[in-house]
């Protein structure tokens, strides 16, 4: 899927670029974005280090396991393949809490920590597990209680009006994400065949 979309975007970019005379802009965008990607990744190092350090303390002191235990009734339904006291559950819960509270800077490092822990129990290191896909889909559906700071800045006094509509819309997209992964993970196209490569 990603193979076709990735190629499709570049292919459409070049074809349309030739057609509209924007081909120079396409070239420039390709080179610029390659640099942007590296800058973004480098820019993450500091924040990642900060949160991963704090997380390590939370882990060593048993806080993560405590949180994971408390939310087990919910997480066991969303991630039935993950052992119930596995540290991944703690990181997933913390990542979602950070997302709900609009703490984007904290959410990414916590999410990456969760991915690393999910990878530990993945038998096929190349291929995403059901739990990973569920976690990703919930993340991309943006569970959020607090409006992004940028939206508040732009909308000013009107922000409080769109508070409710955003909660509704984001709730709908999260329900859609969970329904979609639970449905798709069993389809022939996406299912993992035990023991062999799909």
């Amino acid at each position: 899927m990603l193979n076709y979309i990735w190629f499709g975007m570049m292919f459409a970019g070049v074809v349309v670029g030739i057609f509209t005379g924007n081909i120079d802009a396409v070239t420039e965008a390709a080179i610029d974005m390659a640099k942007v990607a590296v800058n973004l990744a480098i820019g993450l190092i500091g924040i990642m280090a900060l949160w991963l350090g704090i997380m390590k303390i939370a882990e060593e002191s048993g806080l993560i396991r405590l949180i994971a235990k408390g939310l087990r009734p919910i997480t066991i339904r969303l991630f039935p393949d993950v052992p119930e006291d596995h540290p991944a559950i703690g990181s997933i819960v913390l990542n979602m809490s950070a997302n709900i509270l609009g703490l984007g800077n904290a959410a990414t490092p916590l999410g990456l920590k969760a991915m690393e822990e999910l990878q530990e129990i993945n038998p096929d290191k190349d291929t995403a597990t059901n739990a990973m896909c569920t976690f990703l889909a919930i993340n991309t559906s943006s569970v959020q209680l607090i409006l992004p700071a940028s939206v508040v800045a732009l909308m000013g006094a009107t922000s409080s009006q769109i508070f409710i509509t955003t909660i509704f819309a984001t709730g709908m997209s999260t329900i859609a994400a969970i329904t979609a992964v639970k449905f798709l993970e069993k389809r022939k196209r996406f299912i993992i065949h035990s023991g062999g490569n799909p």
Partner: peptide
């Protein structure tokens, strides 16, 4: 970012589900 951080290349249904949610 998330799949890249652990070297997952086969992303299965994650993209379809994410775009559907969007």
């Amino acid at each position: 970012v998330y799949f890249g951080s652990v070297g997952i290349r086969k992303t299965r249904h994650a993209l379809v589900a994410g775009l559907f949610a969007d």
